[in-house]
Amino acid sequence: MANEPNTQTANEWPLWEVFIRAKHGLSHRHAGSVHAPDGEIALRHARDTYTRRMEGVSIWVIRSSDVVASDPGSAGPTFEPAESKVYRHPTFYVVPDYIKHI
């Protein structure tokens, strides 16, 4: 990666990305990151940092170094081809009011 975000040094705990499910039926969303020596403690830190105000019902953590990210330098070829294809958006359907979280 061009901008390596993992600035871990020998004495620092590794970085973990935190994903929180706000309530049942929703997907986990990225909330932020914590430092921790291992996954169990990362979960504790995520709980203490990001769910203090009842924000979640489930937490995932994953080592930041395990995240495979797209290359910002190739954003053009990656994303722009989708720009001109309006027919891929389901805007031609009427979504009933009782269907949530679309």
Binding site: W13, V34, H35, A36, R44, H45, D48, T49, R52
Partner: peptide, 11 residues
């Protein structure tokens, strides 16, 4: 020792 443990202890 770390921001995260700071929060744990304060909690």
């Amino acid at each position: 020792p770390a921001l995260e443990t700071d929060l744990s202890l304060a909690n």
